[in-house]
Design a protein around this nucleic acid. Structure first.
Lengths: 193, 193
DNA sequence: CTCTAAGGCCAAAGCCTGTGCGTTAGTACC
DNA sequence: GGTACTAACGCACAGGCTTTGGCCTTAGAG
């Protein structure tokens, strides 16, 4: 997973000349991550400032600026790692159950304030190219539509399953727990058209 | 219609003691709106700062701070009232036709790049309170659900009609013209559940 | 033990946020 | 068409955040 850190030159170099992933660096990183998640949950992503994060994490603010450059990049980096594109999709042979599990995973993911905040940031930046923050989700949707036994298209997975979840995550996050994965899946599989 | 402006106290008061809607104030408001729309279209909602808007609008930045308080509220407010809440909804007695016309209006509205860009800005600013830029749309959805002959809830109008349109407008704007209002309405009215 | 990545500390220039105060001009009512 | 009232605007200023650079210290990795 590509990180947005500043010192990425050293990351691409063969066998990573000398990156420091343990001990203090790891401690600093986790306390920053904890501080960001707490602050976003408490006050929303607008109120996030580097000095605020630095103070709560017990870290010097210049360290944060050096590592990420700005708050947006930092939030992006901290939230991106969560939904691994290589995580593998449920595939039990029961398409309906697999879809339900997948939808439930999305709902759970975006129920976390940090992830919802990142999604909103992604929405702000979307619309230009096809590479927005939900591209992987659309690819997964197309994958389900291509499975044997499917009676729907990728577009329909988007319209009937992904769109309602994302809409709620962005605009009505407090209703996301009420979103019922099974209902959406039933709508998708049993529709009359 | 409740606006997010700071001086809302005077708006609620009976017969609006003395609001100034004409002349200079109106000019200021329209030039601010123009500036915000241009800047959002050019650089995205992230890059919007009050001084930037003020300079382009030829207005003092304190006027903006006083009117809205912060950029987020301003964007939300401008995005909300792009679609006049008092415009009146289709009501021919044919619920299905009315819904289709309404959905078509939404599709047409968000097919305009400026409106789509504003919507993305509103999405970035959403999630905290219930007053986001789609609140009026949800009220309209609830209105349709309450009409005689309705077999669906306001939530279902959101999930099956609004969400797909908004999702496409934000993330896949080039597919919005393909969005078929009638298909969505059929899905909503003829669903098996 | 050596090398050096990464963090801490300091400082400074510049922009953004937000507010007190005086001025302008829209509205209402003669 | 004139006057009173005051909403809304412009100006200026006091913070705070952003961003960067320099220099020193700490402590992973080999």
């Amino acid at each position: 997973m590509q990180s947005h850190v500043r010192y990425s030159r050293s990351m691409v170099a063969k066998s990573s000349p000398q990156r420091r992933t343990g001990g203090r660096s790891a401690l600093v990183l986790t306390s920053i991550r904890k501080a960001v998640e707490e602050l976003i949950a408490e006050r929303g992503s607008d109120a996030i400032t580097i000095p605020l994060v630095a103070e709560r994490a017990g870290v010097n603010h210049s360290s944060i600026y050096r590592r990420w450059g700005d708050a947006r990049t930092m939030i992006n980096d901290l939230a991106t790692y969560r939904l691994d594109p290589d995580r593998g999709l449920p595939d039990t042979g029961d398409l309906r159950a697999d879809l339900t599990a997948w939808a439930q995973e999305l709902i759970g993911h975006y129920s976390t304030p940090v992830n919802a905040a990142l999604l909103r940031g992604g929405a702000a930046a979307a619309g230009e190219s096809e590479s927005d923050c939900l591209r992987d989700r659309r690819a997964e949707a197309a994958g389900f539509a291509a499975r044997p036994g499917s009676t729907f298209s990728g577009d329909q997975v988007i319209d009937l399953l992904v769109a309602p979840i994302i809409y709620r995550a962005i605009f009505l996050p407090w209703t996301l727990p009420e979103a019922d994965a099974r209902t959406y899946v039933d709508e998708l599989c049993d529709r009359s058209a």
